[in-house]
Design a protein around this nucleic acid. Structure first.
Lengths: 123, 123
DNA sequence: CCATTACATCTACGATTGTCGACGTATATA
DNA sequence: TATATACGTCGACAATCGTAGATGTAATGG
């Protein structure tokens, strides 16, 4: 369970692959990140690196490669958040929530929902 | 208010400077991060880079330089957390808390405290 | 005064990441 | 069939970051 390190641009690619319901080809990926303005080869490099890193699996389908995530979005997010909690908040998730609270906008609805989540966990 | 990017090792230095109650010299910094096993020059490089980046101010005091944070720990943490919320959770702080909750350990006490914080904000 | 010490500065090197251009090939099309 | 098209692969370059050796200098201890 090693921690793969995925760069910001690479992450955008991962998001597209995650959102796709199954294996997705580079053409579709390119289409999905059109607004980033990346050249075709740039995207190809990201894909190759993500495969190298073990974040994606590639399978040949016809002339193109199709990609599947080897780590779930959920898992990856957990890893990242854990890393931040450890490196920035001395391991205290509570402290992190406090910081979040200070810097981000929560609606009253959000808060209600969160309290509900908390209640469910607390017993 | 630009976003300074501080590396993991650099961050350890920042923590020491933050924790110091005032300007702190490189000797004391070195002492404080002894357990990292960094060479003196390594630490000096980090300090120089942090000054370049505008994260620290340096003032000459006798023969040594003394450092003061130009960004507070609080502010920096907010920035980092905001960045993650934006890049990983589509801007939804609520989603981030959910992920946190899934991956980290909260004690019942933590939860009580957090709910209290929430209540105070919610009105 | 001379050697040791305590610092700061400069340069460097490897890994990672963002960003391609150049190439080679296979497929589809005029 | 001669080409344009669509892809994948390689190599490259600049910036950032972790890490540190080499060098220069000023203060200190004998």
């Amino acid at each position: 369970m090693k921690n793969l390190s995925i760069g910001d641009a690479e992450l955008e690619i991962m998001k597209v692959v995650w959102r796709a319901g199954g294996p997705i080809g580079s053409a579709a990926i390119g289409k999905a990140v059109e607004e980033k303005g990346w050249k075709r080869t740039t995207i190809a490099t990201f894909l190759a690196r993500l495969v190298e890193k073990g974040a994606l699996a590639a399978e040949q389908r016809g002339k193109a490669l199709y990609y599947t995530p080897l780590i779930s979005e959920r898992e990856y997010k957990k890893q990242r958040v854990s890393g931040i909690v450890k490196s920035l908040f001395d391991g205290s998730a509570k402290e992190m929530v406090a910081a979040l609270f200070e810097g981000e906008n929560f609606t009253d609805e959000d808060i209600e929902e969160l309290k509900a989540v908390f209640d469910k966990k607390e017993k």
